[in-house]
């Protein structure tokens, strides 16, 4: 695994070179905000972004994807998306989220649809330059990332330090020209940025260690905060939509005009939406808004981390839900801090 330094102009030429060879998705400005888009030129790339509107999960679990096609009486055929691509500029907290999705989609039953896309991707993570308004990755221990990426990129001022994290990363870096092995000084500059990020990406401060949250939630099931917050919840599912670790989906059939053939698709779903648990016969298992609100925050910091035995919570502190929630109730830190205040740390 190599670590090299590349001058910013050389990096731009390098990216332009890759764009000519394969599909490159990078972070671009969208008005005064940012999002992942397919790059046409390296000039579009904005690695100084604060946070993207959408997390990168959509490149692995698209909002709508075809799983199968069918023909009545003739059975079903799997459909796979098999194009290789580069995902450029993923922030560490989003990489942590992808690492968790990888575990979830391979655990118990191996999801070939998700994993094929995952293996077709070369993921280039970049350390955060401009913290977003609502980020709290430092509180969640996700301000930097140690594994899962193919390349880790750090802006050290006039150049980037590029570290390979996999074989795919090695061959990615091998394509770059005008690189030099990173000097001790470059590595120190990178270390300083990462150490600072581990403290400063903290615009909402969690009052306990993130690893304590499952224990805290164990005691909080009947706490009044769920009802209080959910009183103004629109059940719109915006928090689910922007979350890098929300992966619930619905499966539906779409019939073609011939009424013989068609496809089976999966589409994002949200546990905050009314009807998420409704079965035929109108019975709904989580009918109350407060139950659904609680379920999401339990999933983030109890159910999912316990399911994949992860010390890192499934809320990675990107802060997207804080900005997306109209009634301003989604901020997980506010809820968890309230529980710390009321229930204490024991």
């Amino acid at each position: 695994m190599k670590t090299v330094t590349i001058d910013k102009n050389a990096f731009r030429r390098f990216v332009d070179g890759i764009i000519k060879q394969q599909r490159v998705i990078g972070v671009c400005a969208k008005g005064d905000r940012f999002d992942f888009e397919q790059l046409e030129s390296a000039d579009q790339l904005r690695l100084d972004y604060d946070v993207t509107l959408q997390p990168p999960k959509k490149y692995f679990l698209p909002p709508v994807e075809t799983l199968l096609t069918y023909e009545v009486g003739d059975g079903y055929k799997s459909v796979y998306d098999d194009t290789e691509f580069v995902l450029l500029g993923v922030h560490p907290y989003d990489m942590v989220a992808l690492n968790q999705l990888d575990k979830l989609f391979t655990q118990d039953n191996f999801d070939t649809h998700y994993m094929k896309r995952r293996h077709n991707a070369t993921i280039v993570v970049c350390d955060v330059i401009s913290p977003s308004k609502n980020v709290f990755a430092s509180s969640m221990g996700t301000a930097t990332v140690k594994d899962g990426f193919d390349v880790l990129l750090t802006d050290i001022g006039n150049a980037f330090v590029m570290e390979s994290g996999s074989k795919k990363g090695d061959s990615f870096i091998a394509k770059a020209q005008d690189v030099v092995d990173s000097s001790e000084k470059d590595l120190q500059a990178r270390h300083k940025i990462q150490a600072e990020n581990e403290k400063r990406l903290n615009n909402h401060k969690l009052k306990c260690e993130a690893s304590y949250l499952p224990k805290l939630l164990e005691k909080a099931y009947d706490h009044p905060v769920w009802e209080e917050k959910a009183k103004t919840c629109f059940s719109c599912g915006s928090c689910n939509l922007v979350c890098p670790t929300c992966y619930c989906f619905n499966v539906q059939d779409d019939v073609n005009w011939d009424f013989i053939s068609g496809k089976r698709q999966r589409a994002w779903d949200g546990c905050l939406l009314d009807g998420f648990t409704k079965v035929a016969g109108e019975h709904e298992f989580r009918k109350k808004r407060a139950d659904r609100f609680r379920h999401r925050l339990y999933r983030k910091c109890k159910y999912v981390p316990e399911k994949i035995s992860s010390q890192i919570m499934s809320c990675v502190g990107c802060g997207r839900c804080v900005g997306a929630c109209l009634p301003d109730i989604a901020n997980p830190v506010k809820v968890y801090n309230r529980l710390v205040d009321d229930l204490g740390i024991k």
């Binding site: 118990d108 039953n109 992966y247 619930c248 499966v251 779903d269 648990t277």
Partner: peptide
């Protein structure tokens, strides 16, 4: 329960 995937992924 409401079930979609049946294989522990979809969350329903």
């Amino acid at each position: 329960r409401k079930m979609k995937c049946g294989v522990g992924k979809c969350g329903h």
